[in-house]
Design a protein around this nucleic acid. Sequence first.
DNA 1: CATCCACCGGAAATAGGGGGGC
DNA 2: GCCCCCCTATTTCCGGTGGATG
Length: 395
Amino acid sequence: MANVFEGMEEGFRIFKNRDALSPHYIPSELPFREREISLLSRKIAPVLSGRKPENIFIYGKTGTGKTAVTKKVLSDLNEYARKKGLPVMGLYVNGRLHDSEYKVLVKVVKLIDPNMDMMGYSISAVNDKLLETVEGKELRLVVAVDEIDTVKRVSDLVYRLNRSNDEISRGSISLIGISNDPTFKDKLDARTRSTLCEVELVFPPYDAEQLRVILTQRAKEAFVEGAVTEDAIALAAAYAAKHSGDARYALLLLLRAGDIAEEEGAERVERIHVEKARKRVEEDIVYDMVSTLPEQHRVLLLALANMVLKKSGISGFSGEPVITSGLLYSVYRKTAEEYGLSPVSDRWFREYLNELQTYGIISVKVAGKGFRGNTRIVELNVDPSKLRSVIEKSL
DNA sequence: CATCCACCGGAAATAGGGGGGC
DNA sequence: GCCCCCCTATTTCCGGTGGATG
């Protein structure tokens, strides 16, 4: 019998290193972010000479390089500190995965020393452990909390970490908060805002030309030489520029175009593959947002998607149907029951709505005139039919 | 203009899961 | 194993809020 792998390398004539296009890949060079990198590192640099850096707030739309820049700067910081033998540590925590003051603290302790797992201990025990460790080792920490807007009761976290500096005689803890929600800063109370936002850094979206350069650079790493045309790259860049300059979208587009070219057995990635990739990328993005959500959130979204598709709602001024929260709640209840789930109370439903809004999947605004009282109108920010198919598959 | 309605969101109460100490 | 502690998710309770209604 012939070797089962016979001829299989044929499939790899498009990609050389597919990972280079993945959203998690951190390239060694970040074009058009030199200014941000140098600003951020300069603001952090005092930590190397034993002073506590100011807290930093980073804001920018998705796919503007906030995470990549932060990770790059932190990893350079760690490398430099290791080389010089300095007790300096840059830590990265994702707020969506660690969405409470408690979870962030536990994660920070675990990042300092992977053997320390404080899960289950009281928050004050975790905090004491953290302070004791920082003081004992004279650690100077820079803690970056990505997607900080998804952390519940952020102000408690910011306040606690900041106050820690007063309670220890040696070492320090500085914060970097990262958010893509433009309203997040306004939602903070004045004291938290002035604490967290001592320094602010805004990341602008990329334009089409910049995206083209970024894609070209990544394509060099990702594709076999000559396996992608400049045309295809330019088109992907143009689409992404329209998509609010989102580099992640651009990379995903090229990745999917490559997949499609490979599936079709094409020699190289051309414009047509980028065109075809668009649909799949839209689904990828919806899937990304939805797949990690709890069941109840998905049911709620399914109910909403169905309502949008059926256009069954209450008519506003202009006569076009709008979906009020109360109406959505009753549809959600029915949907939940259809799937054999017990629906949550209306109070918790409102909490879900707010969470989904911070995730950016839906928008909620007060109805105002034309509607009774504090009624809010819910809008879906993604394609309803794609959302429905993704959720139905997952339930 | 008083009252009603539809919903908002804080606070307290409750259930449950993880963990230590003995 | 039992008891108590802490965090988290969820329910229950309830006092707003602001436009609609008569």
